[in-house]
Design a protein around this nucleic acid. Structure first.
Length: 389
RNA sequence: GCUGGAAUCGUCUAGUGGCAAUGACAAGAGACUGUAAAUCUCUCGCCUUCGGGCUUCGUAGGUUCGAGUCCUACUUCCAGCA
């Protein structure tokens, strides 16, 4: 399915974008999804602990899967034999595959010599086998997976990387993007480019301008979800990148998805997000709830409930009274507390449903606000929300 | 009744002369951003001005500079024999 982004409305005060991603099949059938959008992550061709039906009930647009993981297991050939990723995992909606670029950061970190011009050397985490991933290989795998959106293979350096390292990294990512694009053969699949450059204005601008010159179906801002990243650097990265991206292409902020990040990203012109946080937090017993608290650094952050805490053992109210998710409509905190204490998988499922729905519901509210030119007021309300429904 | 063996933090457990004492579980809390994460970290005798102080290994004595560890008696439990 080829994708088109249609910018429908820009919030008058903030410039936040409301739009549509329109996927069109070869037969001319069109599927529309509104942006801003939050994409749940299903790295290994499954959103952890959820069935496709449960994911679908959260009303997402696109979901993610990962090239690196599916390359190792079950292999792209198996997915291809299954009839592609959609068939294989029984997901009829759009799928975006990450390129494995993030794994360059998370798996090959501190081993600079393993990142070469040609590609990246990995050691398989499964069987210790030596692996070599190149831009061409990543695209070839994604072609076989038959996702709707493939990502360019990029290097995702840590935020702590110095200017020179980042400069070289941006150059290399551009060359990799070009090489990937040259071998991209799947006519039904869209290819997105990725802007890198840390928190440096000149690098981000240069990366954005040059990536756009190569010509992609959409653009991502990458390298902002690394562990030593501070919020300011993330905001800078977006602000230094977005002005150089075309208005008529979708903008994807990679790996980011705390509620505050959605608010701030959208304000700066981002359309789509993905993040493991809602599902990971869920498996670790945490529920996202409305309301704002301050972190140790003094940064605003969403409130959460740790359902494993003893205080919930006899709390027979839902996670959030006002939430419309399956979990909140049918189960109590006491029950989820019990499941998490026992290590029952259903606890993780219930919290994953709530957390994913929480973020998607937030995007739904933001879309309405943008359409009505009251996104600025929405943000003000968001930050002063006391967390009580 | 006799002969062995055993009693250690809520539970199980390590520990054979230098020990506030091992590990697991349980419990209490925290972290988590393109998933090496249903994971990881911290606390878990009492007190603390974080230097340390105090009281602990069934009970009571004893040996020793020093005892959970060795000796004696007792209590309880387990196994085998009657």
């Amino acid at each position: 399915m080829k994708v088109k982004y249609q910018l429908i409305h820009k919030d008058k005060k903030t410039g936040a974008r409301y739009g549509k991603l329109i996927f069109t099949t070869e037969d001319g059938e069109a599927y529309e999804y509104e942006t801003p959008m939050f994409m749940p992550v299903g790295t290994q061709a499954t959103v952890k602990t959820l069935s496709p039906e449960q994911v679908k009930a959260c009303n997402p647009g696109i979901i993610l899967a990962n090239t690196y993981h599916l390359w190792l297991r079950p292999t792209p050939e198996i997915v291809e034999q299954a009839g592609g990723l959609h068939q294989f995992m029984n997901w009829s909606g759009p799928i975006l595959t990450d390129s494995g670029g993030y794994q360059v950061f998370s798996l090959a970190r501190n081993k600079k010599k393993d990142i070469t011009e040609e590609g990246v050397h990995f050691k398989s985490e499964i069987d210790g086998r030596k692996l070599f991933l190149t831009p061409e290989k990543s695209i070839e795998i994604q072609n076989k997976l038959d996702s709707d959106i493939a990502m360019s293979f990029d290097e995702c350096p840590p935020a702590s990387a110095d200017y020179n390292y980042l400069k070289n990294s941006v150059e290399r990512t551009l060359r990799w993007a070009k090489r990937g694009k040259a071998v991209h053969k799947n006519k039904n699949q869209n290819l997105f480019g990725i802007v890198q450059g840390g928190a440096y204005e000149d690098l981000r601008k240069w990366s954005a301008v040059e990536t756009v010159k190569l010509g992609f179906d959409g653009y991502a801002v990458g390298g902002v979800a690394n562990d030593d990243e501070c919020k300011d650097d993330m905001y800078k990265a977006i602000e230094y990148s977005c002005p150089y991206l075309p208005e008529d292409k979708v903008r994807y902020l990679m790996g980011v998805g705390e509620p505050v990040d959605l608010i701030e990203g959208i304000k700066r012109g981002i359309d789509i997000f993905d993040c493991v946080s809602p599902t990971r937090l869920a498996r670790h017993g945490n529920a996202l709830i409305s309301g704002i608290r301050k972190t140790e650094k003094g940064e605003p952050k969403e409130k959460r409930l740790n359902l494993k805490n003893a205080c919930f053992k006899d709390d027979f109210t839902p996670v959030e009274e006002t939430c419309d998710c399956y979990t909140c409509k049918n189960y109590t905190k006491a029950y989820i507390h019990h499941l998490m204490r026992c290590g029952e998988a259903f606890g993780a499922t219930l919290l994953s449903i709530h957390n994913i729905r929480f973020l998607i519901r937030l995007t739904e509210k933001m879309r309405e606000a943008i359409k009505e030119d009251r996104y600025k007021e929405f943000i003000e309300e968001f930050y002063k929300d006391d967390g009580r429904d």
